[in-house]
Design a protein around this nucleic acid. Sequence first.
DNA 1: TATTTTCGTGCAAACGATTGCATTAGTGGT
DNA 2: ACCACTAATGCAATCGTTTGCACGAAAATA
Lengths: 342, 342
Amino acid sequence: MQVTIKDVAREANVAPSTVSRVIANSPRISQKTKERVRQAMEELGYYPNVHARSLANRTTQAIGLVMPSAATKTLQNPFFSEVIRGISTKAHQNGYSLYMTTGVSEEEVYEGVVSMVQGRRVDGVVVLYSRTDDKVVQFLQDSKFPFVVVGKPFSDSSHVTYVDTDNYLAGREVTKYLHQLGHECIAFVGGSQDLAVTQERVGGYKTALMEEGIPIHDSYIVSAPFMTTGGADAVKRLMSLEHPPTAVVVSDDMMALGVMSTLNEMEISVPDQMAVVSFNNLFIAEFSSPPLTSVEINIFGLGFEATNCLIEQINEEATPYGKRVIVPHYLVVRQSCGGTAK
Amino acid sequence: MQVTIKDVAREANVAPSTVSRVIANSPRISQKTKERVRQAMEELGYYPNVHARSLANRTTQAIGLVMPSAATKTLQNPFFSEVIRGISTKAHQNGYSLYMTTGVSEEEVYEGVVSMVQGRRVDGVVVLYSRTDDKVVQFLQDSKFPFVVVGKPFSDSSHVTYVDTDNYLAGREVTKYLHQLGHECIAFVGGSQDLAVTQERVGGYKTALMEEGIPIHDSYIVSAPFMTTGGADAVKRLMSLEHPPTAVVVSDDMMALGVMSTLNEMEISVPDQMAVVSFNNLFIAEFSSPPLTSVEINIFGLGFEATNCLIEQINEEATPYGKRVIVPHYLVVRQSCGGTAK
DNA sequence: TATTTTCGTGCAAACGATTGCATTAGTGGT
DNA sequence: ACCACTAATGCAATCGTTTGCACGAAAATA
């Protein structure tokens, strides 16, 4: 049915092994035969069967993607599309393709990874989240399988390779920026507290306040599960304080949208009555009303770099010890903080 | 290195074939041996090698995803994340995983698909776009490979299976809705004119106008490449007309965001001075200011249904002729058209 | 008891590539 | 003219499964 290497061999009057070597472009085959074989491949429309190939040379040219289990919620965040775009670009450049399983529960995701790894379906894995005490990372580590984490892994990060933004620094910078604009009452609205990102960004926020000599009020730090409420209650809580803030650092553009929408409903104008700054600089930041001032963290780059590291690992060009890559960020000033000409 | 079926066989004191049959849960194996074998598998931590398996039984349990070549731009639209989520959910339910290649140019995408199909890497393919005169669809059709298109394919759609929204109807309904709210001057802002979606939505828009006895002005129909300008110039063009519209149908939430942002800049208030309605009901519709009135087209469902059809095809449970599935839609009224209590 | 069925298992040949080693032909040195 | 050596190709084993068929033992039938 399918045209196999044998058919090509017959057509070109050589042995299958020769054809194989032509595919691999081995220098041991003469130019003349190479051409003859290539011609035969062309004529018959031959494409190597990937599975036979993988089986024989124990390589797959595929990279596995591990997504958070609650794919329902997370995949909606353009963050993921963008990382994947980065991953996919680098992967493609190096002749790898992408492979993904999903699972409903954490357990299912874990099972998926195990069978992906043990079943030798992929050459390496990139993990798209970082959670405290994660089975998946633990497993990958134990089985000495090539993998890279996007975001800072919690446990034993010294031995795992990861690619991340300096969220602590970014949080600090952004807060200082607001202070420079004259704000003294600065709040922080973040997503789930047990995500590394949130923790680091809050950390930076606090440090900045301390450095600027502004007291830290716990009531100014609120976190809200994003996808459900859109941060509405967080805003309401902040605004009902005795001294409501005049500026707010939001840990994510998506959430910032929700925050601004709520403020809009409450007829609090941005940026006049409330400055908003956030992170990620998703493309929607540009088109919101008013356009968001946000930290560009180069999500694409995170994915791209992660894949780069992974491929190094696969080719054993990498150090056996974990490697950390920090992708630089910068503030994109638009209108949600005022401070610039409109 | 890896633990193979032979190891399990030895451990359980049976032949490899028996182990294989246990994996397949063949009724020909006695309960007692099954248990013994399962125990051995457990003990050794055995996972079947997918490639050996695929090679032997000529099946991959994987579905290929074909994305538009300009992945750069398109993948940013949450539409894709959402379709993929639908696909991935159904796929997972049926034990399939996803496989994707990308390419920079159209040609690269095509090559990717060919080698995916000919190399037998996947059992079927879902095509995530519909373009006029597409090589990929043509190829899939010619090779009689199972595939499904999300969106209406242009050429010879009678023989290809596709899953789509009734965009024509949706466009018509939405326009009528605006008319019911009292608008007479209704414009249409769309994306690239050669996309099937755009064409159909415009079609519905025109029909509605005709049915309501409103003349169609060509100057009211503008299209703008979204990702570059965000629709800003489209809005400006409309507003500089002698009789600027009082309502606008926008072909996509993303674009509607851009439109509203521009209107905001021009200090034209939505919905008071301009009603905006759009399609897709992405989650951002809920969090924009004001929240968007948009047509929910169940993107997740599109992906889910597409995969369903594909799996039917793979299992040869489907009719050999193309099948069309129309996923129902409905209008979600929020605040961008006014018309409801705030 | 002899004969046929049924049941449970094993043997060995695929599946379609890769690769170490053997083989052949050609080249140059002496 | 012989040998050694290199260059180009072929042979056959291997990768880890699946599966048609054969086989023996036990159960059912006559």
